[in-house]
């Protein structure tokens, strides 16, 4: 090999490593972009001054203030209540719809039902929100509340909010459960029926256990979306009803304080918990998949 050939080879190698290095650096920057704002947000929730940009020592007082804030606590339990109830309803309805659409290839108006189920996913929440607002006002259903006490707090949750959350969650549950059903071997149901199981028993003994990871995944997604929702709640709640996001929005309007950072960190904690649960559900999904073959 001549000296110049060796030099060219060395240049090539250098360029290769430089390119790889730049690429990895880009990856790190990308993730920094996603995480830094959140991390800074959490850090300043512990800031011992009213500022969210100038560090002046560690404190937990914003968390204390949050816990003592009656409105925030009501909003928190409102959020949880709406999410639990709407998730339960949406999971049952969405799962049944998924079964119909995935197990029956053709029936009258199938396409219409299919599109109806897809639309709430595509349509932006602002459009859905004003639609529901107009509907509740016009139909006279209005914003009547469901009164419950949880954790010593008296909640008044408008039915309209729950109805709205169910309406957008059905579709998401149906999509997730359908994906699971599509993976499942349909002859398993036939095998159960062949072995003298009635359709009802087939469902409980074979279909449901096998599609459970999908149902759980769908329920978790619905729960997350419900906790996450601001726009639809904001429009369908009438006056004076707060979920956590609605409360945070109201607080931001009045000014930025580390208390909002504290509430945000709390919500972040919820999300982390849900991601973990979703991950566990997905694990279950994969185990089952291996067992299928």
């Amino acid at each position: 090999m001549t000296a110049s050939a060796a030099k060219v080879a060395r240049q090539h190698r250098t360029r290769h490593w430089l390119r790889r290095g730049l690429f990895v650096a880009y990856g790190f920057l990308g993730y920094a972009f996603f995480y830094l704002p959140i991390v800074i947000l959490v850090i300043f929730s512990f800031n011992d001054s009213r500022s969210v940009s100038k560090w002046s020592g560690f404190t937990l007082r914003w968390y204390e203030a949050m816990l003592q804030d009656h409105q925030i606590m009501v909003a928190l339990w409102n959020s949880v209540f709406v999410a639990v109830v709407s998730t339960l309803i949406a999971t049952v309805l969405g799962t049944l719809a998924a079964l119909a659409l995935e197990r029956y290839r053709r029936f009258p108006a199938r396409l219409f039902a299919d599109i109806t189920l897809y639309l709430p996913i595509i349509i932006p929440d602002i459009a859905m929100a004003i639609m529901l607002l107009a509907f509740f006002k016009l139909s006279g259903i209005g914003f009547q509340t469901w009164k419950v006490s949880i954790a010593g707090l008296r909640l008044a949750v408008p039915y309209s909010v729950i109805i709205g959350h169910v309406a957008f969650n059905i579709s998401f549950v149906a999509v997730v459960v359908r994906a699971r059903l599509a993976q499942m071997d349909r002859t398993l149901d036939e095998a159960a029926q062949d072995l003298y199981a009635t359709p009802w028993r087939t469902f409980w003994r074979v279909t449901l256990p096998l599609m459970m990871p999908g149902v759980l995944g769908g329920a978790l997604l619905a729960f997350t979306l419900s906790l996450d929702d601001f726009v639809i709640t904001f429009f369908t709640s009438g006056a004076g009803f707060n979920t956590l996001p609605v409360r945070v929005f109201g607080m931001i309007r009045k000014g930025v304080t580390p208390k909002i950072n504290a509430v945000s960190s709390l919500m972040l904690g919820f999300s982390l918990l849900l991601v973990t649960l979703a991950l566990l559900a997905a694990r279950g999904n994969e185990d089952r998949k291996i067992q299928m073959f």
Binding site: A100, T116, I170
Partner: peptide
Amino acid sequence: ALRAWLLLAPSFLWLLLFFIIPLGII
């Protein structure tokens, strides 16, 4: 088809009432 529609009915009615009709109103 009857079975399919029985399964579909609850969610479809929900969406008809709280999605399709509101859309129509708008």
